[in-house]
């Protein structure tokens, strides 16, 4: 099998996987009890009114008929209108996903950079107290319960010391003030981002640190490093020139996948910090039975992650031809 056939084969598989996911989503969402209008027991809506609106939303049709319409609309790239917001699904997602990318993607990148940097130091200074300290610190921060950490941070830095805003993404007073320029507004968003970013950073950098450290230690035992050492090269050169590029590969893959996953945000972080992102929106959409919104958001995430997976596979196949012949 050459690289081309491999890519072709994987691409076909991705299309099939995608189809399975979208069908799965459709039926999972519809099978859960209730419908977008079953919650309104308190309101003045009578049952006849509800039946009428359900009919117009197409919810009275047989589930397989609804499925066919859903597939047809998907082919036309028409995701429909959110039942809850009454606006086009894409309008809702567009706003929320940018906020999510801003927070989560930034935090993945920064924590990966810091993790790799510190992981290299830990591997270099292996078995010293610095290494032990870094390892333990990253284990502890990596396993801390996220929402709890978030709440503590809000309490300490947001409320007790009043260093950062408590929640949300904008200070309305700043954004409404015509005298405040772009810089001031950007700073305001950064200011709001600080606490959620900090908690995500604390949670994630440890993972990358440990991964990098292990990968480095593994590489340092390879024959070519031993050879380099036998040749009498300086330790620093061995680490930076020979070990680092190879050791970084698994870390880079892991970062790549995390980046892809980061667009699904985190319902927990977004809930605790009231960050208007896609993760919280999805939880809400599911609990509101807002099928079009939930489907579209799920699918968007699925496609990004699937593609990232394939890219990683292809990258590996390219670097290591043995994989193709399995």
């Amino acid at each position: 099998m050459n690289l081309k056939t491999f890519i072709l084969k994987r691409s076909i598989q991705v299309v099939i996987s995608f189809y399975v996911i979208l069908s799965l989503l459709f039926f999972l969402l519809r099978l859960s009890p209730g419908d977008p209008y079953s919650k309104y027991i308190d309101s003045d809506m009578t049952q006849q009114e509800i039946e009428l609106i359900k009919k117009q939303m197409g919810l009275d049709k047989h589930i397989f008929y609804q499925y066919l319409i859903y597939i047809r609309n998907l082919i036309k790239m028409d995701f429909g209108y959110s039942f809850h917001y009454g606006t086009h699904v894409w309008d809702v997602i567009k706003n929320k996903i940018l906020n999510t990318i801003l927070l989560f993607t930034t935090s993945v990148i920064v924590s990966a950079l810091v993790g790799i940097f510190l992981g290299r130091i830990a591997a270099w200074r292996r078995n010293t107290s610095l290494d032990a300290g870094l390892t333990i610190a990253s284990l502890v921060t990596h396993t801390i319960f996220l929402p709890w950490l978030g709440l503590l941070l809000i309490w300490i830095f947001g409320y007790k010391f009043e260093l950062f805003p408590l929640s949300g993404i904008y200070t309305p007073e700043i954004w409404l003030d015509p005298e405040c320029g772009f810089l001031r507004k950007a700073l305001d968003v950064m200011h709001h981002m600080a606490l959620p970013f900090l908690s995500l950073f604390l949670l994630h950098f440890g993972g990358y640190l440990l991964l990098m450290r292990n990968s480095m230690l593994g590489t340092l035992k390879e024959d070519y490093i031993l050879t380099a050492r036998a040749k009498g090269l300086r330790e620093k050169d061995i680490i930076n020139r020979h070990a680092l590029p190879n050791a970084a590969l698994p870390v880079v893959t892991s970062v790549g996948l995390s980046l892809a996953f980061s667009i699904n945000g985190g319902a927990l972080t977004e809930t605790v910090f009231s960050w208007p992102g896609i993760g919280r929106e999805l939880v809400m959409a599911v609990s509101h039975n807002d099928y079009p919104l939930a489907q579209a958001a799920f699918l968007l995430i699925a496609i990004v992650v699937l593609l990232a997976n394939v890219l990683v596979d292809i990258l590996y196949a390219f670097l290591d031809p043995r994989i193709r012949y399995e």
Binding site: S17, I21, P33, G34, V286, F298
Partner: peptide, 25 residues
């Protein structure tokens, strides 16, 4: 192929959210 692609599909779905759907199910 079958098993690994199934694995892919499951891995792609965000666990927490699938659980929410199943919870109401």
């Amino acid at each position: 192929t079958l098993l690994m692609r199934t694995a892919d599909v499951i891995m792609v779905l965000p666990t927490l959210l699938v659980i929410l759907v199943l919870a109401s199910l």
